[in-house]
Structure formats: C-alpha cells, structure tokens
Design a binder for these strands. Structure first.
Lengths: 211, 211
DNA sequence: GTGTTATCTTTACGGTGTCAAGATCAAAGA
DNA sequence: TCTTTGATCTTGACACCGTAAAGATAACAC
C-alpha cells in the first residue's frame, strides 16, 4: 500500500505517514464543533474521526488548546472572508457599514457554535488597541476599521473618536450575534429583523444624521 | 458532635448529615467559577470544597447540568437585583434606561466568568417572546421591559415596536458585556467609556431625539 | 426502641487530556 | 544498496472527570 513511488502523489503539505494530518485535524475539529457544539468536542474524538490513534495529535500540537487555537484561526479566516465579500462592490459608506453588520450577524446565525468557540474557548488573542506595536490586528475588526474610517471621514467625525465609534458599532452587531448564539435563548422572531430595526432607528453608531 | 439537641441550631433548610449541602454546593460552585472560570469547574472540585464525597451532589442534583442550572438561577437573581438597584430613585425614563445599561455592563465587568457561564453553559432557558403563555419571563429582561415601556410611551413610540426596540437596547449592552467578558480580547481603554460614548452618540436605541 | 428514608460514602466504569516508550517509515548519506 | 536519522504515529499508562450501584449513617415518625 505504501510503495516508494507513492511520493508522486503527495499533497502540498508534508506527507509522512498520514499525508496531512495537521490540516485534517483542524478540519475535522471544526466539523465536530459544528455537529456537537463546543461541549461535544474532544481531542480523542477528532483523532478517531481522522483514523489515527488518540495521541497522534501531539505530534502536531503541544496540547488541545493549541489545536483549538489553530481551528479558531481557520474559522476566523472564513469569517473575515465573509465580511470582505459583504462589502464587495461600490457601496456608499453607510450602506457598506450596514452590510458588514448584516454579514457579521448572518455568519453566527448559520454557525451558532462558532460564537462561544471563537470568543470564549479558543484561547486566541484579539487586539483592539492601535497602540500595541507589532501585534497584528484582529482581521474582522480590521475590516470594520477600514469601512468605518471611510464612513466617519465622510461625516466629519473627529479622528479621536474612531476607536470608540468602531467599538460601539462592533458591540452592537456582536450583541445581536451573541444573543442569537446563546443556546438557551428562545425568540420566535427573526434576528435579522431586529437588526433591520436597529439600522432604521438611530442605533447605527454615528451621530444623529437623517440620511 | 451531633447530639439530638442539635436540631435547635438547624438552618432554614433540611439538615440531615451536612446541614444544607444543596445551597453550599451552589455557593461553592459559583465561587469556583469566579476563581477558575467556567473551564476550571468540576463537580468533584465543588464536592471537595464542601468537604463531602464526590458522589454526594447526586443526592441533590440529578447531574452536573442541574447543579449548573441552579447556580445560574442564583447568579441571575443577583444580576436582577443589581439591575433593580440601579434604577431605584426617581429618574426620568431616559436616565433610568442609561443606568440600566451601565449596571448591566458593570455586573459582567466585575464578574467576567459569569457571561459565558450564564449565556452558553448554564442550560437555563431565556424566554423573550411575550406570546409563550405560562412561561415565566427572563427576570433581567423584565426589568428592561418595565423601564423601556415607560420610556417608549413618553416618546410616543408605537407599542408594536416595543419588543424590537427592547431587543435592540439589550443587544447593545449585551454586546459590550460580551466583548469585555471575552478572555482573549485585549483593550487598553475603558469599556464604561465606550458605553458612555454610545449613550452620547445616538446609539440609545430610540429615535433620534435631542434630549 | 424500631423502622423508614433521605443523605452520604465507597467502589467501579468508561471517557478525557497528557506523557513516555517504542514502532514505523520517508529522506539523506555512505 | 545499506545504514542512519528524525519526524510521525501507536501503545500503554496515569490522573481526573461524570455517573451509577450498593452499602453505611443518622434524623425523624411511630
């Protein structure tokens, strides 16, 4: 089953025994969280899904937290891509900001298990401060910043307010996402409708303009 | 150590062997979560804290989820009390609503571990719909409703908007609380300052009035 | 005093994360 | 081609976890 010629069929990653166990673990781990929630996750289940022994992951991650962090990085990339796609096109700043919020909420509406995983279990660090030199910014927040700055400048908001206004907007969409991701919350209405109500009633985090 | 006369010193609850193990478990469980976070919680640690064997809790709770739910009820009561206290006095509706938001955020700022515990781990059900007959409302939201309705009527908002506006306000304060409770988020600024910025810039979830 | 019954302990089981030792095997060097 | 090397994976062990079953304990009713 493992001839020497097999090297011709290698994937792009290292392929010693398994082929690409590291990425396989990350993908199966994410699938497991989607299937069973963060509470149903275990290192041994992921290993079993990948068809390897329970200790095999330790050749690629020093502990379960490191695997979770790699999974969170992967999900965060998908999340950021989803936000980026939502503002493709030539929207006016206000419209782009609204679409960003809609995409943010929709992402967690489609994957409720990602919310507690990303923000309470993954162990990843999210840097908001602009003053910590060298630290890479949190990609989803960077998308917010890019779009928000464009909006704020078009409205004459002083730059000193940028960070606080961005955090205010983020808090708003994050709050909707948080509530709809909470397992125990029962609401018969539509969260996107709540979000539309917010957009239409002055909760759009900038000064009271009347469009 | 346990004479027959000891009955004179019983607490208000049942006191067979331990005295009041059920409540002791709840209180020590909450302390454990405050000390080590939701990840550091275990049934056996709580039992050890109470000085009983690891299976003793099963005389009072059918499983660990039931203990967690009882702990969440206890914390929710404290939380509701904190919200109620924030609006004691004779505030105008807008001021009362602002104070509610401040108290909501402050509660989780002082106890960050409570957020993931209450909203993602406890298993308690939070009912927002007004149409589910018989189900008790979620107490903190009921405080919001009481104060919000007073505000909305004073502003002539149609009753049909009440639920959505309340959810909008809740989302906003919940979002701030969620962000500041996330273990991985690093922000050198003050969240209460962010909240004050929101209050001053039209994010107060009602139509654009100018005080 | 006797019996009842809730409460608590002991023991055991499978599942979990983690570590150490050994087996496997692709690649590199002779 | 043979050997060596080192990354990768397996096996086995350990402590901790939630949970169930069976027995001990002791407060209460009679």
């Amino acid at each position: 089953m493992s001839r020497s010629k097999k090297g011709a069929f290698i994937l792009k990653e290292t392929n010693y025994h398994h082929g690409d166990l590291r990425n396989t673990l990350i993908e199966n781990g994410i699938e497991l969280i989607n299937a069973e929630g963060i509470g149903g996750f275990s290192l041994r289940k992921v290993a079993a899904r990948c068809g390897v022994s329970h200790a095999a992951p330790y050749s690629h991650f020093k502990d379960v937290q490191e695997l979770l962090a790699a999974m969170a990085d992967h999900v965060t990339t998908r999340f950021t891509d989803s936000l980026e796609r939502s503002i493709e096109g030539d929207y006016v700043p206000q419209e782009a900001m609204n679409r960003l919020g809609t995409a943010y909420i929709a992402f967690f509406q489609h994957h409720p298990a990602y919310f507690p995983f990303l923000f309470f279990q993954s162990g990843i660090t999210i840097r908001i401060d602009g003053d910590t030199e060298g630290e890479p910014p949190y990609p989803p927040f960077a998308v917010f910043r890019k779009t928000g700055i464009r909006l704020f400048r078009s409205q004459g908001l002083p730059e000193s307010m940028d960070d606080k206004m961005l955090l205010a907007f983020w808090s708003l969409v994050h709050g909707v996402a948080s509530l709809l991701s909470s397992s125990g919350i029962r609401y018969s209405g539509d969260w996107q409708e709540v979000w539309q109500t917010i957009l239409q009633s002055g909760g759009n985090t900038h000064e009271n303009d009347r469009a």
